[in-house]
Write a protein that binds this DNA or RNA. Structure first.
Lengths: 343, 343
DNA sequence: CCGCCAAAAGACAGCGCTACCATTTTCTTG
DNA sequence: CAAGAAAATGGTAGCGCTGTCTTTTGGCGG
């Protein structure tokens, strides 16, 4: 006898079935597809399960059925508040479904991402959410082999692995810079930190907008691989001002930097927007309440997370979306910090 | 024959064992406790596993061993940035271990918490992290029955379910208000939102500090059950000023509200700290860079998450901590916003 | 009242791994 | 060098559930 005799542990499906007077397999079906049972048996199983306080053993279910009800989520950072909103959307959407979220942090490393992807592969998740479109060849191969729906989030691009929900960072940055140009600004700086692929694309948008206006000047660009932080905004503005004292606007690749820039300006007595216009990116809540209120590019982060889960759930259940790539767009939120000079 | 013949799916332990020329159970041991194998077998299993690209099937492992390597985390909110930092600590600490984090959101509802706790119970987690000390009787009973180490985080209190990592919100608030009193402030307002149990305890700390100075006045207190937000800070300040026009300081239960208050003051031309002193709570990064810089109470959120996981892992492995309740304390960060009036 | 068909219920084996114990091998030591 | 202890390894069964197929049941027309 290899194991101790039956311990009195948690209630098993067999016990429920016995109490309900049905076979275990019928009880099993009750939990997966109650419609398949006759009304009488359905009620009996239901009350038996309630009476015993039965909770299915997920490990056994996963082993027997060869699949799980887990949605794997790969996100590059928890420090960056942007992903906080995305996660909120993901968790909110998952609560209505029967799927569980399993979240992992790639730390902006595509090799770490590859490793984690392999780990997920072994768990046979029901679906996968990955950030961005810059996966390694190997990662793409693993994803393709996984045989589950996959959504790439945060940006759109050509050649989706499966599905996508995002927006064009290039277009968003182009629009933000174009707005500053329309306000008559000419010496528009670019302040960027961390410089992940999406930030790189924002830089391209900035560059092309400036070139289109024949105002491009590499001295107006200041970037650092350092992770973003509010204090960094102040430091970077100081450095940029040293390189380009005639700066009359800044495009910050996120709102933390923008607020840091605002504070630095207050410290130095630089009038916003008269001397310097500021525009941020993402439109976090504080942008609207700052004094002066700060312009930004609103991105639909919560919706991205939420829609990714929705698409995944639909796809798992066989209802693949009409178009696999969803562009959630962006919106310019023009506020005091980029008002016309004489406004 | 109930199933199709052996499909060519993922590599199983048996395959690895065969290639290594050992029994499956020996191969199994390699993955759980390599020390138990002789060096020669260890090397053979290792290379066989690598060659075949073996990844253990976690569902089978969980089913056979009757336990998982999951740490369940119950946290009340993803919107509140405080928990972002805690989660970071949790995830960072878990990466060094073999445990996986399974996070769920209780939405500040103790009934939801109870429900989620039951769900976790069925999954037999290796450990559990729960927020706060205000669980239902039923929840406590479930936890006690779970037979796994449990850490309550975010605050300390009497009667831990098992272990605790946190600090005294009462003491922290008391200290913050005492500081304002020492600066000669007499009409110190309290601005609070959401009013979860921990915020309630901060209110008590405020109340007792004011009473001790014989300066308590209920008109100085303004709270709302609304979730916290930066704009809310401004609104609440406006309302409080209507009730108590002679206000000379505010204690905000978090930094978002404090920044909102600062912005509202800038809008109204209220001089900080001359007319009004401000102190927040948590010491988020932006507090130091604001102009004027904002005082706050530093709390060790990241460390709380990190230490909770560390304690859990230690406990699972039989090394229970010397003292089950860890007080991480707090630190008053005094900055310009609560400097003396003539400073 | 029979036969037919669809729907409902059940039988059975096995998913991939590990607990438990038995057995073999290696190491100590008088 | 024998004998006992300790370490390393293996055999077997089963964790709790579900996929597949088979059997039973019930409804209905003739």
């Amino acid at each position: 006898m290899p194991r101790k005799s039956r311990k009195l542990g948690p209630i098993r499906l067999t016990e429920v079935a016995k109490l309900a007077g049905v076979s275990p397999i019928t009880a099993s079906r009750f939990f997966r597809n109650p419609e398949a049972l006759s009304v009488s048996k359905r009620e009996r199983v239901e009350s038996a399960a309630k009476e015993l306080g039965y909770v299915p053993n997920l490990a056994a279910r996963a082993l027997a059925s060869q699949r799980t009800e887990v949605i794997g989520v790969l996100i590059p950072s928890l420090t960056n508040n942007v992903f906080n909103d995305v996660l909120r959307g993901i968790y909110d959407a998952s609560e209505g479904s029967r799927y569980t979220i399993q979240f992992v942090n790639t730390r902006y490393s595509i090799l770490q991402e590859e490793k984690l992807l392999r780990l997920f592969q072994a768990q046979k998740p029901a679906g996968l959410i990955v950030t961005g479109i810059n996966q390694t060849e190997e990662s793409r191969a693993v994803m393709q082999a996984m045989n589950c729906p996959i959504v790439q989030i945060m940006e759109t691009g050509p050649d989706p692995v499966d599905m996508m929900v995002g927006f064009s960072h290039y277009d968003a940055a182009f629009a933000a810079v174009s707005h500053l140009l329309q306000q008559g600004r000419k010496r528009i700086g670019f302040i960027g930190a961390r410089m992940d692929p999406r930030v790189q694309r924002r830089l391209e948008g900035y560059r092309d907008a400036m070139k289109a206006a024949s105002l491009f000047d590499p001295n107006l660009i200041l970037t650092t691989p350092t992770p973003t932080a509010m204090t960094l905004g102040g430091t970077l503005l100081a450095d940029l001002l040293a390189k380009a004292p005639d700066l009359d606007a800044v495009f910050c690749i996120n709102d933390d930097l923008a607020l840091g820039v605002l504070f630095e300006c207050q410290r130095r007595g630089i009038a916003i927007p008269e001397k310097l216009a500021i525009i941020g990116f993402n439109d976090m809540e504080f942008m609207a309440s700052a004094v002066p209120s700060l312009s930004s590019v609103r991105t639909n982060r919560y919706e991205m997370g939420r829609d990714a889960v929705t698409m995944l759930v639909e796809a798992v259940e066989g209802r693949r979306p009409a178009k696999p790539v969803v562009d959630l767009g962006f919106e310019l939120m023009i506020r005091e910090s980029s008002a016309p000079r004489n406004g």
